Computed example of a mutant assay.
Amino acid sequence: MTYYKSKLTASLYATMSISFWGVSFVSTKAVLGKLDPYSLLVVRFGIGSLFLLLLLLMQRKRLLVSFKYVPHLTILGILGVFVHQILQATALLTINASSAGWLISFSPIFTVILSILFLHEKLSISKAVGMVLAITGVLIVTTTRSGQSFQFFINIGFLLMMLSTLNWAVYSVLLKSLKIPYSPLLITFYMSLIGLILTTPLLIRNKGWESFSHLNYSEWAHLLFLGVFVSGIAYWYWGRALEVLEASKVSMFLYMEPIATLVAAVLLLDEKVFLISVAGGIIIIIGVIIVNGQLMPMLVNLIMKKRR
């Protein structure tokens, strides 16, 4: 009974993490009207770093790390926080939040491609089919309405969002291969701190603090959400879920992220939902599931449940 309770709790942690990450696109989009991407990220990383530090102090965790792992943490902070968040925040200047949510689910495809190129994994027929489906879904999502027809166009925002998914795949591979012997909470704290250090000079250059007085209570609430729940709690809960569930099972929760983004975008930003975009997003997710070899297990489990 205790085992199933711990699994249920871990699933709840993973669900909350994905929900926070999904809504993050909406909160970022809501604040970009007042702040430039760099100023937004400085506030977010500042709040996140302070919150994570308080968590570490409350848990009486050791803050010092070996000098040996400083380069590792620096690389992860640059890729996983600084570059990744700047790409996404800049992309959201020209695309809507729901489209960003669908496109970010393409990241596992890049992970598989990197594994084939650098880890010499074999490209099976099922993986090839899944990739073709996922790429087709991306092309559909990046289609815009023009009158009664839909025409594809190249938008810099879509390109930046795709680059962010590639960057996240590189970061994920590095995070796994570097094997830093510290808790996810401590690693996340240093990554957020590195992001704060790297973006602060850009805030100073642009005099971003002059825009802070223009923010209303709602926009400050979005920034607090990004700092505390997205940069802090989401990463922390994700690590706690991984302590109980297998990585492959936890990764299944990633398919819920675009749904969280879509719902939040409609409720908070009044974004219009185009069926063509939803169809493209579903195709992306199906393609990713096929590439990960998770389609057949899902179908078997569904059939077994119906028989019961």
Rank of each mutant, 00 (worst) to 15 (best):
M1F: 11
T2L: 14
T2C: 12
Y4H: 07
K5G: 07
T9P: 07
T15L: 13
T15N: 14
T15V: 15
S17N: 07
F20W: 08
G22D: 09
S24I: 00
S24K: 00
V26L: 09
T28G: 08
L32N: 02
L32F: 04
P37H: 01
S39V: 14
S39F: 08
L40M: 07
L50N: 07
L56A: 05
L63P: 12
L64C: 05
L64I: 02
V65I: 07
Y69K: 10
H72E: 03
T74H: 07
V83N: 01
V83P: 02
Q85S: 08
Q85Y: 15
I86M: 07
L87F: 12
Q88R: 15
T90P: 11
T90G: 11
A91V: 00
L92R: 09
T94G: 10
N96A: 09
S99W: 08
S105F: 15
P108F: 12
P108Q: 05
I109T: 07
I109V: 10
T111G: 10
F118Y: 01
F118C: 00
E121M: 09
L123C: 03
S124L: 12
S124T: 06
I125W: 13
K127E: 01
K127W: 00
G130P: 15
V132W: 15
L133F: 12
L139G: 11
S146E: 15
Q151D: 13
F158T: 02
L159E: 13
L159M: 09
L159N: 06
M161P: 10
L166T: 00
A169L: 00
S172H: 04
L175C: 05
K176W: 01
S177I: 08
K179W: 13
P181T: 02
Y182L: 02
S183L: 03
L185Q: 02
L186G: 00
I187G: 06
T188D: 14
T188K: 05
F189I: 00
Y190M: 14
L193G: 03
G195K: 07
L198Q: 04
T199A: 09
T199I: 05
T200L: 04
P201C: 03
S211M: 13
S211E: 06
S213M: 15
Y217H: 03
W220P: 00
A221V: 02
F225Q: 04
V230R: 06
S231G: 01
I233T: 08
Y235M: 03
Y235Q: 03
V244T: 10
V244P: 01
V244R: 04
E246K: 00
S248G: 08
V250D: 12
V250R: 11
S251P: 12
S251R: 15
E257C: 14
A260P: 11
L262Q: 13
I276H: 14
V278P: 05
A279N: 09
I282Y: 11
V288P: 12
I289H: 14
V291C: 09
Q294P: 04
V300M: 06
L302T: 09
I303M: 13
M304T: 10
